[in-house]
């Protein structure tokens, strides 16, 4: 629990220099294209492209594997059930149930697509500074209030996480070890309550401090991102690359 609450490894090199808005829109286009694919070979190609982007952004394989595993609890249920529940010509049987080739392909497609989208999310918007992500979202048309809420929440997450660590350390000093029992659950309930009480007090202080600095209900987005020639080149390269995926998918 000593790692920062919002891990955001900064992108290096070519991807790190791209405009945040471009990275967001590229992730969106990639997700749209990937989800619409129908052939496993092309979905695998999309996953390969996503992996290439993730490595180009300088993400470490170990971190990526850990992040992708977060997805797999949900996936496991689908992977285990889909081959046996999709109608189609039987491939093999396990006791009373038979697996169909169609089902296995469907399961494989979901696995490829979900991981590809998550990889691109981690590689493009995931390597932005959270504050920059908030600004970029506001610039591409997300309601301003929502962007403000995100920006302020990001800042407070860091502060409250420190508060949380302090409370957690106090518990550890009193020899608290979390176990699967009602005592632990009750204690965590109190911990969350305490965190909420302190956060409300903090919210009031924050509001007061902001009023002192002439806050009258409006924040201004101060960011200096500029669209440069590299961004235009990157989008000119990326769009045909992404659009070729559905083309290959239909033609084959």
């Amino acid at each position: 629990m000593t790692q920062p609450p919002l891990p955001s490894p900064q992108a290096r090199g070519w991807i790190g220099r791209r405009d945040p808005r471009l990275r967001l829109l590229a992730a969106l286009l990639f997700a749209l294209v990937t989800v619409s694919l129908e052939r496993p070979a092309i979905a695998a190609l999309a996953l390969g492209l996503a992996l290439a982007l993730a490595f180009a952004a300088g993400l470490k394989p170990r971190d990526l594997a850990r992040r992708l595993l977060a997805l797999e609890g949900f996936m496991l249920i689908l992977m285990l059930s889909l081959p046996f529940t999709t109608p189609g010509p039987p491939l093999f049987s396990l006791g009373p149930v038979t697996a169909s080739g169609v089902g296995i392909i469907l399961a494989l497609m979901i696995l490829l697509k979900a991981n590809a989208v998550v990889l691109v999310l981690l590689a493009l918007p995931g390597t932005l500074e959270p504050v920059v992500l908030g600004h970029a979202l506001a610039r591409i048309g997300v309601p301003e209030k929502l962007a403000h809420l995100l920006l302020m929440t990001v800042r407070q997450i860091h502060l409250l996480h420190q508060e949380f660590l302090r409370l957690r350390q106090a518990m550890r000093a009193r020899a608290f070890v979390p176990r699967a029992n009602p005592h632990t659950w009750r204690t965590y309930g109190w911990l969350m309550g305490m965190l909420l009480v302190r956060s409300l007090a903090r919210g009031e202080r924050l509001m007061g401090a902001m009023r002192c600095r002439c806050f009258h209900g409006r924040l201004y987005l101060l960011d200096t991102t500029r669209w440069n020639r590299g961004d235009t080149l990157a989008s000119l390269g990326l769009i045909p690359l992404l659009l070729s995926l559905p083309l290959l998918d239909r033609l084959g």
Partner: peptide, 29 residues
């Protein structure tokens, strides 16, 4: 968003940050 005015944004942000941090706690079960 229409019901949330800018005046109440800071306390709302602090509370939502508190919820985000609480959701990081892994509860043994």
């Amino acid at each position: 968003l229409r019901r949330l005015d800018y005046e109440r944004l800071p306390p709302a942000a602090v509370l939502s940050a508190a919820f985000f941090v609480s959701s990081l706690i892994s509860v043994p079960m």
